[in-house]
Design a protein around this nucleic acid. Structure first.
Lengths: 242, 242
DNA sequence: CCCCTTATACTGTATATACAACCTTATACA
DNA sequence: TGTATAAGGTTGTATATACAGTATAAGGGG
């Protein structure tokens, strides 16, 4: 059952674990390549690969002749990121409610198999939820969840806690991907959102990873008249987010 | 003058050049590690590093036992980064071109005065540009620029350098704001983008600040069928992106 | 005291080698 | 004909070794 990770990945996990747990604070020094060679009993090239890849991912900064250090990771706060809609609505002083449309266990289609980065189709939890702000539908949520990571996902009561909130509290998220497009709603979506066929919608697709495995894929459909996505943040000298 | 690049970087450049120039189309096979060993006279580990890093960057897909292939680059743009569309298109190995529709000096409307955080209306530079990917319109850019910060903006030749590129090189950006909504195009937009009245569009509004002053306001309209906005990033050390 | 040299530690790159896992194709066999 | 096997090419990982470049600290000589 337990898949043996490659050595360099084990070293990466070890270092990343110490960073995320806060044991190694930002700016502090991580073991040098030769120290990792000693403690893990590996070759220097393997230690080099672990440190080099973590540096490429932005977790570490390497300085020739000096050492390797934990990088400062400013929180990139924005509404485009992982935020659950219930909090957003309540932050506006409005009332959030939700209607559970579908809750089932399905087998992944080919497209979903690709999304989850699997080679073969596997079982998936599937959920369809309509979120309402003061009784008016504002978001249609299609969600698929990897059962291997969130095994008890389907037995949750999602009228009290949104799927996003449950996943955020249960699984640590390493990586997020968002994709936004404009779509015209189909008949089912029109009915569930209470809109006409002529109203365009935003379709926000979100994938989240934990330890290089896709945890969940969600498609969030917003009627254009009722919602706009928004973000604002500071940047560094290169024009990239901090 | 010439800085000698490391061997693995030279190999990466060679492969990337063939992708961007379109010599190697999406789906086509790139040389195997052993073939690179032969043609470049390098060791297999060096070839491996070049291919592995390009795969990590999303340019290549590697299949054990089969080979390495040029990946399809989806027509998507990053909403988190301040990146100019010309680079994005060229990174996909396609050709970027642009048509300047309007170039003028105007006085800010009340709405624009608010956007620029001014108390009274002031002069503004205004530009309308259509960006094309392989000759097909993919973005309609409405841009307003603060003349106090970029005084020589209007005399630039924007067929060689995009407005975004010019501003990125001229003014350091401290802060960015994005807002996305779904719209139906009006008659003018339909004509400029070459789309029908029934195709929804993404309208991305962007404001950027430098030293607490608004530098530029831009509205970027993307036909839904040709573009999706995209972002992917690692979360912070605490795994709590918000 | 200051400057130069030297030693040491660390990262960056490159090679040669090895073995495993995977896939395709050709071949031998029933 | 159909199937099992073998061979060869491909990626993935791991090691041992080597040399270059950079930064820091220690020591020696003016």
């Amino acid at each position: 059952m337990n898949v043996m990770l490659p050595l360099y990945a084990q070293v990466k996990d070890h270092i990343l674990g110490n960073i995320k747990s806060g044991t190694w604070a930002a700016g502090s020094r991580v073991p040098s390549e030769n120290e990792l060679v000693e403690s893990f009993g590996i070759s220097r090239m393997t230690a080099n690969r672990a440190l080099r890849e973590l540096a490429g991912d932005g977790y570490l900064a390497r300085v020739p002749g000096v050492g390797t250090f934990v990088k400062e990771q400013a929180a990139r706060t924005s509404m485009m990121e992982l935020r659950n809609i219930a909090e957003e609505i309540e932050a506006r002083g409005h009332k959030h409610s939700s209607r559970l449309i579908t809750r089932e266990k399905v087998t992944a289609t080919q497209a979903l198999t690709d999304e989850f980065e699997w080679k073969t189709p596997k079982p998936l939890f599937h959920l369809v939820v309509v979120h309402e702000e003061n009784g008016l539908p504002v978001q249609l949520e299609y969600r698929w969840v990897n059962p291997q990571i969130a095994a008890d996902f389907l037995i949750q009561n999602f009228t009290r806690q949104t799927p996003t909130a449950y996943l955020m509290n249960t699984v640590p998220v390493d990586e997020l991907e968002h994709s936004v497009e404009a779509i015209m709603p189909d008949a089912t979506q029109q009915k569930l959102l209470g809109i006409t066929a002529h109203e365009p919608c935003l379709a926000l697709q979100r994938r989240s990873w934990s330890k290089d495995q896709v945890v969940t894929v969600a498609t969030l459909v917003y009627p254009a008249s009722r919602y706009a996505l928004h973000s604002r943040y500071k940047t560094n000298a290169q024009g990239k987010p901090l």
